[in-house]
Design a protein around this nucleic acid. Structure first.
Length: 886
RNA sequence: GCCCGGGUGGCGGAAUUGGUAGACGCGCUGGACUUAAAAUCCAGUGAUCCUUAUCGAUCGUGCGGGUUCAAUUCCCGCCCCGGGUACCA
């Protein structure tokens, strides 16, 4: 029988759709398993071969788990807000939903053509008002929550106790007090602004030279009122939570930890000379306080106006102007020379009592710590560089010791920087009763910190790199904030009964004035009045794309519920997500933001688990071969010719190098899954995606590889669909052994997401059967079941041909039987001085002394021992024999 | 710079509580089938050397050391490639 994959795949896809084979509901009689893919952004260019990689992996696990008796939730949906649709709307004037829905249709059709076992009744779309109603609702929950640091927990704003002195200060003070504690707050924030396009640019739209990606004009900073989320308050919770994620890759956990960036140190107050104010700095090295020879504040530091002296003010202001013009990248480029200027004022070093100058420099960032530092050039590389350039004193206070070698003298002389441990010198002030001379770093930090706390000059502090989350965008195509700004300054967040707040239709999608979103032009929508005639204006910002993707895994649980985001009992049944697979590019932000929302919802009692995703796995990227000349110029693939394994430019005849690169239109190396399905079928595409290599690896696509697995599937079909190959006799022992090895290996590999080796084992089994010529019906059926999660269409077809009317997916996954796997003999490799020379087959349970006798009696053993002395014989049962001779 | 991956045949990749390096697939070579080609099937395929052929020998998992009876696997020091991040005090 011919392997007519087109007919077979169409038939079974229709069957699954008609029978709703993958529809699930809560079923308490079965254990649940929730398998989630990172849902895609439905771009205009359709699916690429990278998408099916993760989807096939989760599909195999889903089908396998169902066969193991689990109630499997496996949904798909669309992360459909986003810039491209808006850009298209600006150009064509059509509503973004039109192009978005068209793209979703394409994606859905393409995904369905791969035979993936999603429950399509649970499809979600973040742009659907029925969906974003609840995104908006969650925003209102954030707005109405404060973080109780005492118990490290989010609590309803109604439970916030307001201090007496605030209460007596009046309504305005109370409002401010409360607003300062909400998890969502409205504040000034800096954004990139393009004067030419009159538009706010995302960070990634600003190129390294500070120009706007779209128009090439230089962007500048602008302050705009923005919605922010206080994720930083959850830093410690998010950090601690990482430790619980035992089924996450260590690399992702590391990235999350680094992003949160916890560091412990101390805040220290420096008295400003000639002023009553103190300058607060954060340092992780309070122990180096004696070495602080100057201070630096960030250009945006609020005290700077006071700090700069009249004489220095013009120069300082000039510096501030030039600093503000720099792009982020200019400012943070490590290669760049440090810049700065003296403010004219000094401060008192609290331990030494010495007067030290205060500088302003843009290598100090306002966004971290206190925006001011004490500079210890002898023991900090950045401070050292700065001190060298501006000829500021370098005082060594930490002796590196003998181990440092030549560099030690330089360090002691203040000519080199030492950031490692050592023994303190010059760190004593008898008058103030402090010395750490002779101590090491750890003891030094402890002593100084204790002294600072005792003298009330500073305190032990923890700092996090994690900053509050800028949660608004000046765009049309996003969730509108359910917010009204009333003329009296009150901010109203809409009640659930008024949600969803839908986007108004517009004629033009161009941005509003002064950086407002296009929504500012929708006057009818924008301006509101309450029943008392009070005027208000709706929020014109919209939410970022993250919003919809932060909680979609929860809506899948109960996607059509009109009354709540999801039913409580349903949530309890399905959560947490048992397996989450997606690209590594989401290792930090998406996963951190989702975890943050989840923790808030957990604190409010809305979800039942502390963390949303139990097991996480990142699939690797799929690349393609590309070609370049000796000088590194890329050549489009259609201009390349292969001759005897060498590559040449078709026109210039220049020899080219084959490289691996991202698929791109310009390189003409893009592979479209539709074409692969058309030529080889969905089962071949699925199998090849899994056979290419480990799921997590980055790997190049080759068409010949698809041909290879296609050939395998064709052989499977040809062999197992032909009755001549089925015997009624007893199964051969060897076949049973390979069969059970295969069941065992495939099962283990699927559980561990090592699909490439599972497929390899199934190839070995098939090769064995073809050689053997005949297998029993039982063997054939068992194997088809094992293969079915991988190549479901083909296996359904064979299953039906074997006379079954129910889907093979309803069968149980076969169990392997150890009795077929037991070996009676083991073929020992015999090594001499570690080199394998020959093999000898011996009973598995043979005693070590017997093995030795047998090995030494072997003909070939003579060859390697003759004229030599046997020093030692190592025998590891069922592993190896090694004989040491000399 | 820092953090995280990774370097194994012509290619994608197997094999790590240290124990036969190169499973499986691609490609290539030879053969069968065919008027021929494609498809399919069979055999071979790390390199070098020896041999008429067998049998066999030496080398070989990025580089240099080390531990061990035994190292792709463990330790130390480098090199290269990919990804992330950007002066975080």
């Amino acid at each position: 029988m011919e392997y007519n994959f087109r007919e077979i795949e169409k038939k079974w896809q229709d069957y699954w759709e008609k029978n709703k084979s993958f529809k699930v509901e809560v079923d308490r009689s079965k254990p649940k398993y929730y398998i989630l893919d990172m849902f895609p952004y439905p771009s205009g260019s359709g699916l690429h071969v990278g998408h099916p990689e993760g989807y096939t992996a989760t599909d195999i696990v889903s089908r396998y788990k169902r066969m193991k008796g689990f109630n499997v939730l496996h949904p798909m949906g669309w992360d459909a807000f986003g810039l491209p649709a808006e850009q298209y709307a600006i150009q064509t004037g059509t509503h973004p939903s039109i192009i978005t829905n068209k793209n979703c249709d394409t994606f859905r059709r393409q995904i369905k053509s791969l035979g993936l076992s999603y429950d399509w009744d649970r499809e979600v779309n973040t742009t659907d008002p029925g969906y974003f109603k609840w995104t908006q609702w969650i925003f209102t929950q954030l707005y109405n929550t404060w973080f109780d640091a005492e118990i490290q927990k989010g609590r309803p704003i109604s439970e916030l106790e307001i201090p007496e002195e605030i209460k007596t200060a009046g309504k305005e003070a109370i409002r401010k007090y409360v607003d300062d504690r909400r998890l969502a707050y409205y504040d000034d924030a800096q954004v990139w602004w393009c004067d030419h396009c009159k538009i706010v640019c995302a960070n990634e739209e600003v190129l390294t030279d500070g120009s706007h990606e779209k128009c090439g004009n230089i962007v500048k900073r602008k302050n705009l009122k923005q919605w922010m989320l206080r994720i930083s308050l959850y830093a410690e919770r998010l950090l601690k939570g990482v430790d619980e994620l035992t089924d996450w890759p260590d690399s992702v956990k590391d990235m999350q930890r680094n992003w949160i960036g916890k560091s412990s140190g101390a805040e220290v107050d420096f008295q400003l000379e000639g002023l009553t104010n103190k300058l607060k700095v954060f340092t992780t090295r309070p122990d180096t306080l004696f070495g602080a020879t100057y201070m630096v504040v960030a250009p945006e530091h609020p005290l700077l106006e006071k700090i700069m002296t009249i004489e220095q003010a013009p120069k300082v202001r000039k510096y501030l102007t030039s600093a503000s013009l720099k792009s982020d990248l200019d400012r943070t480029d490590l290669a760049k020379e440090k810049t700065g200027i003296f403010t004219g004022r000094h401060a008192i070093n609290p331990v030494s009592g010495k007067s030290i100058p205060i500088w302003v420099a843009d290598y100090v960032l306002m966004g971290y710590g206190t925006g001011a530092i004490m500079a210890v050039p002898a023991h900090d590389t950045r401070d050292f560089e700065f001190a060298r350039k501006f000829e500021l004193p370098v005082n060594c206070i930490l002796d590196p010791g003998e181990a440092a070698g030549d560099i030690r003298d330089k360090v002691l002389a203040g000519e080199a920087c030492w950031t490692e441990d050592g023994i303190y010198i010059n760190s004593e002030n008898r008058a103030k009763g402090i010395t750490i001379n002779g101590l090491n770093k750890e003891e030094g930090i402890k002593n100084i910190t204790a002294w600072l706390e005792q003298k009330r000059l500073g305190k032990e502090t923890v700092n996090y790199k994690l900053r509050d989350w800028l949660f608004s965008r000046q765009r049309y195509w996003g969730e509108p904030f359910p917010v009204i700004h009333w003329e009296d300054g009150e901010i109203e967040v809409l009640d659930k009964s008024k949600l969803p707040l839908e986007l108004p239709a517009l004629e033009k999608y161009l941005p509003g004035d002064n950086g407002e979103s296009p929504l500012a032009n929708a006057k009818d929508w924008l301006l509101v009045k309450d029943k008392n005639g009070r005027k208000g204006r709706r929020e014109t910002n919209t939410m970022p794309q993250w919003a919809g993707s932060c909680w979609y895994y929860l809506r899948y649980l109960d996607p059509k519920n009109p009354d709540v985001a999801f039913d409580k009992e349903t949530e309890k049944y399905w959560m947490p997500v048992d397996l989450y697979i997606g690209g590594a590019e989401h290792a930090v932000l998406h996963l951190l933001y989702s975890r943050f929302w989840h923790k808030v919802l957990y604190d409010l009692g809305i979800v039942s688990t502390n963390e949303p995703f139990k097991k996480l796995f990142n699939q690797g990227m799929i690349l393609a071969f590309a070609y370049e000349t000796g000088t590194g110029a890329k050549v489009a693939s259609d201009l390349v010719e292969e001759v005897d394994g060498e590559y040449y430019h078709k026109e210039t005849r220049e020899e080219l190098n084959q490289i691996v690169a991202k698929m791109s239109k310009s390189l003409k190396n893009v592979v479209n899954p539709d074409d692969v399905v058309e030529h080889y079928g969905a089962d071949s595409l699925r199998l090849y995606e899994m056979f290419m290599g480990p799921l997590e690896a980055t790997k190049p696509w080759t068409e010949n590889g698809v041909k290879g697995v296609f050939g395998f599937l064709a052989r499977v079909f040809k062999f197992f669909s032909n009755n001549d190959h089925i015997t009624n006799e007893e199964e051969a022992a060897e076949t049973l052994k390979v069969l059970h090895q295969t069941i065992k290996k495939v099962e283990q590999d699927v559980v561990n997401l090592r699909f490439n080796t599972a497929i390899s084992q199934m190839m070995i089994f098939t090769n064995h059967c073809i050689k053997a010529g005949k297998v029993t019906k039982n063997t054939a059926e068992t194997f088809i079941k094992v293969l079915s999660p991988f190549a479901p269409h083909l296996c359904e077809e064979l299953w039906e041909a074997y006379g079954y009317s129910e889907s093979i997916g309803k069968e149980s996954f076969p169990d392997y039987n150890n009795k077929y796997l037991k070996e009676s003999t083991f073929e020992y490799p015999v090594s001499f001085n570690g080199k394998m020379r020959f093999k000898i087959e011996l009973p598995v349970d043979m005693q070590v002394s017997e093995i030795e006798k047998n090995v030494l009696a072997h003909d070939l053993a003579q060859k390697w021992t003759i004229g030599k002395q046997i020093r030692k014989i190592i025998i590891v049962p069922k592993k190896i024999v090694n004989i040491v001779v000399s």
